[in-house]
Every structure is written in C-alpha cells, then in structure tokens.
C-alpha cells in the first residue's frame, strides 16, 4: 500500500476525533477503508482520500472517521460500574440531592447505546425508590451513525446475548423478527446527542456521574490529558468518573484520584468525599 496518504489520514483522524493510528496499525487503514471506498464508488482508497485532501470538510471525512473508530460495546460491560451504581451511588445521590430530587449522568462515548440503556434499566428496576425524582441520562458520541442506532434501540440476537440478563431482555425488549427493540419507556429515559470529546463539554452542563469508558485508549497522551481536564470541569464536586477497566488517569492528570470502591472509579483529587464514599 502506498504510504502517500498515511500521513494525511493520520493527521486528519487525530485532528477530527483524537484517534491515533500508529504505523503498525496501517493494515487497519486498508481493511477498513477499502470497503468504504468501494461502497462510496471510488476505485481505490487513494482516489477517495484525494477528495478529502482537496477539501478536508467533505462529508467523506465523517465516513472515514467512522470506519476507523472502534464502536464495540455491550450491555452491562464489566458489570462492576453498574453494581456500584445500584449499591452505593444511587443511595448516596438519593440522600445528597434530596433538595433538588434530580441528578445527571453522562455517557461520554456511548456508541450504539448499550451503556446508557444498561443504566436506564437499572434505574427502572429501582424506580420504586425514585418516586418524584428526575434522573437525567445524557449519552453522546462523535459518530452520527452509532447515535442513530442507539436512538433506535434495535439490537441483534447476538448483541442482546452479550451482558444482558435474560430476565431484563424479557422485561424491557420487544422482539422484531430477528432483532430485539428496547421498549419506549427505557428509550425515553436517554437524551442522545452528538458531541466530540475534543470540544468543551460545558455546553452539556454538569454531571454527578460521568462514564467515559473505552474511548481514551484510542487517544495520545496529550489528548487524554486534555479531555480528562475538560471532564473534571463538568463533574460535580462529589461526583464520580468511570473509565474503562483497562484505563487509568495515571500520568495524565492531577485532577482525578482513584476511589477504593472499584477499579476505574475516580473522584476530584481535592474534592469532598464522593458519592462512591458514603
């Protein structure tokens, strides 16, 4: 493969979504962009990238970025965050936010929606405790197409068997031929919105819980630090941040401090006891 456009694509992706493609991942460019070029009617990747080189704002850029990003997700991924939410965070929020009867959760790279929907199902299971409360779940991603899928709430048989207890499948989904659709009451609990983590999240307001899982791994150190910095500014003083199970803030920021409650759970370094520390 000619490496002519490698530099261009690498810079384009880094600037557009923060995604870092190292030379050893070059094979990925080919396996992911070849099908895209064919789909869009170009004879080669070169020809498609040529269009983007002439005009970096061409909509092809969105498709290229989408094809290169990993969107893999599953229901109740790693389980521990959802258990912690049930056993500790929610009871603490019910105490500490009793005046406003409101709290806000942000899923910062929600992909096809499994993460926010897992939270929504947990909330619905506990709705008896939530009378009159208005929990808000904001779920964002840079990719329009995954957001579209997420909002649709339609999942394949394979997807509903990864992480989702069958009791919840029966309770919250309706079968549509080979697929399963989340019921409206759960879908309506989430606000989906396009948002690039490289931008300032202040436009989204502040949050009591932020899940930013399995996305920072694709960024370089400077970008990770910057994103964590912005996130810390929209997290409530006693709020908590969840990273993916293989991610940490070590060496990236001084803003966050791990809490004992679990791996990948963080609080403000100089903040009061967080909602994960009753």
């Amino acid at each position: 493969m000619p490496s002519g456009y490698f530099d261009f694509i690498r810079d384009f992706l880094k600037e557009h979504s923060g995604l870092v493609v190292t030379p050893d991942k070059m094979y990925l460019l080919e396996t992911r962009l070849n099908p895209l070029a064919r789909k869009l009617g170009y004879s080669s990747i070169d020809e498609m990238i040529g269009v983007l080189q002439n005009n970096p704002n061409d909509p092809i850029g969105i498709d290229v970025s989408e094809a290169m990003n990993t969107h893999e997700s599953l229901f109740f991924r790693d389980n521990a965050p959802f258990e912690l939410f049930k056993t500790t965070l929610l009871p603490e929020l019910l105490k500490r936010r009793a005046d406003k009867r409101k709290f806000r959760v942000w899923c910062a790279a929600c992909s096809s929606g499994q993460e926010p929907y897992s939270l929504a199902m947990v909330l619905d299971e506990l709705s008896g405790k939530l009378g009159g409360w208005r929990p808000e779940i904001v779920a964002t991603d840079i990719s329009k197409s995954v957001l579209q899928r997420a909002a649709n709430g339609l999942y394949s048989q394979f997807e509903v068997q990864r992480g989702l207890p069958v009791q919840l499948l029966v309770k919250y989904f309706t079968q549509k031929d080979e697929n399963w659709r989340l019921n409206d009451n759960i879908r309506n609990m989430i606000t989906f919105r396009e948002f690039n983590l490289l931008d300032d999240p202040k436009v989204l307001g502040t949050f009591d819980i932020i899940m930013c899982r399995n996305v920072l791994i694709y960024f370089d150190i400077a970008t990770k630090s910057r994103v964590l910095g912005s996130i810390s500014r929209v997290l409530a003083d006693d709020g908590v941040l969840f990273l993916g199970s293989a991610e940490s803030t070590m060496g990236l920021t001084e803003e966050f401090w791990p809490v004992k409650a679990g791996r990948g759970v963080y609080k403000h370094t100089n903040g009061p006891a967080s909602i994960a520390e009753p």
Partner: peptide, 20 residues
C-alpha cells in the same frame, strides 16, 4: 427456540439463563 414466549416459559419453569 428464540421467541419471547419460549423464553418466558423457560424462566417460569426455573431456568437461570437462556442462550439462543
């Protein structure tokens, strides 16, 4: 058997999980 009726019947009979 991957329809919701079968799954429900299985849960009621005491199944713990269900793989389609």
């Amino acid at each position: 058997e991957n329809d919701i009726e079968h799954i429900q019947e299985a849960i009621e009979a005491g199944a713990n999980e269900y793989i389609m």
